[in-house]
């Protein structure tokens, strides 16, 4: 299946969870937020939340700011 991952097209094997995707892409979970199809996915859901074909996954992180 394919997902859109921060605007990049990414091919994934089936049954991939959000947590697995982050490990696969070597992304540190600290200070990170994930939205799928413009819905924020709670951190506790990452190990269970299965990605679907054509999902649009966006990652956000904490930066400095006033």
């Amino acid at each position: 299946m394919h997902i859109k991952f921060n605007d990049q097209l990414l091919q994934l094997t089936a049954n991939c969870t959000v947590a697995e995707l982050l490990i696969q892409q070597q992304i540190q979970p600290q200070g990170l937020a994930v939205a799928i199809n413009n819905t924020v996915i709670a951190k506790q859901q990452w190990p269970q939340h299965q990605l679907r074909d054509n999902d649009c996954v966006n990652l956000f992180h904490i930066v400095t700011g006033g």
Partner: peptide, 15 residues
């Protein structure tokens, strides 16, 4: 602190 879209190709500081 603020939020930003993650840039996949840039290393992230541990703030």
């Amino acid at each position: 602190l603020a939020l930003k879209r993650l840039e996949l190709d840039k290393p992230q500081d541990d703030l």
